[in-house]
Design a protein around this nucleic acid. Structure first.
Lengths: 142, 142
DNA sequence: TTCAATTGTGATGATTTCTGCACAATTAAA
DNA sequence: TTTAATTGTGCAGAAATCATCACAATTGAA
């Protein structure tokens, strides 16, 4: 089965794209513009900007508008965990997809799922952007 | 953030509805028909049938067509874990939502997410339909 | 055999989500 | 100040998904 993760206004690809973008920024000395990132990943510049806009608001990326603008990491790659990215992008306190009562079986089910999601995130917390970058470099050398 | 789980052809509500339906079946002596279940839960009979059809194929439920037909559990409530339900409904080897290469960072990311999902499922494995039923009964008494 | 009632599922209109355009706001060089 | 190039985002058409209808297949009672 396929576990799908969805934020309020971003599609199912955002998680992969966000991580790959951060890895890209981590390996770049210069600011990267949305169209450069988009091109490297075969995605749409607008899509990339929407993701980076969120990451910028969460403080992981610095965005500079105007001519000569672009994006760069604002934290060290080792300080950004995959869980951070997951949470930053999902922040939207958006519409719960299923209205859950505050008592009874349904409540219990909701709590159970919530707890399971915590486990999901705990796992993601063990990885940083730096580790993803190392992985890339390792592949390059072989 | 809201973690959303989606199978190939069922909506985001399936997980809740499937669990509640199984709890309902577990607490019933007689066969229940889709329209009875649907009514109790404020859902559509077709929706309920689609879920139960899958659970039937996975062997957790017995479905009988024709007049005087209906559904009943085919395993004891204590033998069905929430993870079982999760997997039974998600079985569809459906279209991966994101095409992942077999090497490089993207592959690593995919594996990482997959591993995190395993953690998610491990948590769900700790609960059975019987436990959900107990929860319901506990609430009733109070 | 006939018949009423059920399951399983294809099809379809409604709704939601996604993609990408277009442009206001911004920026810093010249 | 002017200008070219960028970010951020509202919006609209496209695509995907959802809910439900409709009906074939099935079932067992009478």
């Amino acid at each position: 089965m396929q576990l799908m993760i969805q934020s309020g206004d971003l599609g199912p690809k955002w998680f992969h794209v966000a991580l790959r973008t951060l890895v890209l920024l981590a390996s770049s000395n210069t600011m990267l513009k949305s169209h450069q990132i988009a091109e490297k990943m075969g995605e749409d510049p607008t899509f990339v900007r929407k993701i980076l806009s969120k990451l910028s608001k969460s403080g992981y990326v610095t965005a500079q508008g105007g001519r000569y603008g672009g994006y760069q990491l604002s934290k060290s790659p080792g300080e950004i965990t995959v869980k951070d990215v997951y949470q930053a992008l999902g922040d939207s306190e958006a519409t719960p997809f299923y209205t859950v009562p505050s008592t009874g079986v349904e409540y219990f089910i909701a709590q159970m799922i919530s707890h399971a999601e915590t486990r999901f995130q705990e796992e993601l917390k063990q990885f940083t952007i730096q580790q993803l970058l190392d992985q890339k470099d390792a592949r390059r050398k072989s």
